[in-house]
């Protein structure tokens, strides 16, 4: 079963003359363990798609199903619970709580879910270690670099062991080097920790880390590219380019 499946997903903002169709009948399937990037020019509806999949917003028509569960059937509270347990969010601006230490930020979704503080804390410690920040657990967000903050955010997204990670321009606020680090980390999320990542980005270099790229234009899916992994491809391609010289 697909982890994410949308059927004729449509979202219209505003009414009457001012109505803007952000998404038009989008059908999308994301299989478990996939790393999918959504690309497209700004205003193409890629963020809207992510919001709808994450249950942050309600579609105008069509439906979103996560693991077969139709989101439109859920109440606000049920959606909140679903977000808490099934989805991890990574935002462009990290969105860490400034007054909480790194470990406390990571523990937040667990605490919200009623996990005992001690267990939440040890879980947070574990994930901070995994993202390579075991020496930064007691730092406040403002004591961390942008890349480090985003890694904390990824640890937070992973802490509640959700199957799906939704990332909205996760490198949008970072320089290219930190951006690469974050993209590599997301790659590990898929390869090592067997999660599914759906990421919105406008950076081709970051999108290239994915297994599949979905191209949106004017609210519809216009194309998709499946990127096969492996070394051979890369070697061949680079050689080709070098010989072109």
């Amino acid at each position: 079963m697909a982890i994410v499946e949308t059927k004729e997903l449509t979202k219209v903002y505003g009414r009457g003359d001012a109505a803007v169709t952000a998404l038009r009948k989008v059908d999308l399937r994301v299989e478990p363990g996939e790393f999918v990037a959504v690309m497209g020019p700004s205003g193409c509806g890629k963020s809207t798609l992510l919001h709808l999949v994450g249950g942050l917003d309600r579609p105008t028509s069509g439906r979103v199903a996560l693991n077969g569960q139709d989101l439109s059937e859920l109440s606000d509270d049920a959606l909140t619970r679903l977000r808490r347990r099934e989805i991890g969010f990574v935002f462009q601006f990290y969105n860490l709580i400034p007054v909480l230490k790194a470990a406390e930020n990571v523990a937040l979704p667990l605490v919200l879910d009623g996990v005992s503080p001690r267990k939440a804390q040890s879980q947070a410690q574990l994930w901070l270690e995994r993202v390579g920040l075991s020496d930064r657990t007691d730092h406040r967000p403002d004591e961390l670099s942008g890349g480090q903050q985003q890694r904390v955010a990824i640890a937070r997204a992973l802490a509640s062991e959700p199957a799906l990670i939704l990332a909205d321009e996760p490198t949008g606020n970072l320089d290219s080097r930190a951006g690469d680090e974050i993209a590599t980390l997301l790659r590990r999320v898929v390869d090592e920790w067997k999660r599914t990542v759906l990421m919105v980005t406008h950076d081709p270099r970051i999108a290239a880390y994915a297994d599949r790229i979905i191209f949106l234009k004017d609210g519809t899916v216009v194309d998709e590219a499946r990127l096969v992994g492996g070394n051979d491809g890369a070697e061949k391609l680079v050689r080709q380019r070098m010989e072109d010289l």
């Binding site: 690469d180 993209a183 081709p204 270099r205 999108a207 290239a208 880390y209 994915a210 790229i213 590219a225 990127l227 096969v228 992994g229 492996g230 070394n231 491809g233 890369a234 070697e235 391609l237 680079v238």
Partner: peptide, 8 residues
């Protein structure tokens, strides 16, 4: 993209 993926 395939090339870029390989390179990355």
């Amino acid at each position: 993209y395939q090339e870029l993926h390989a390179v990355t």
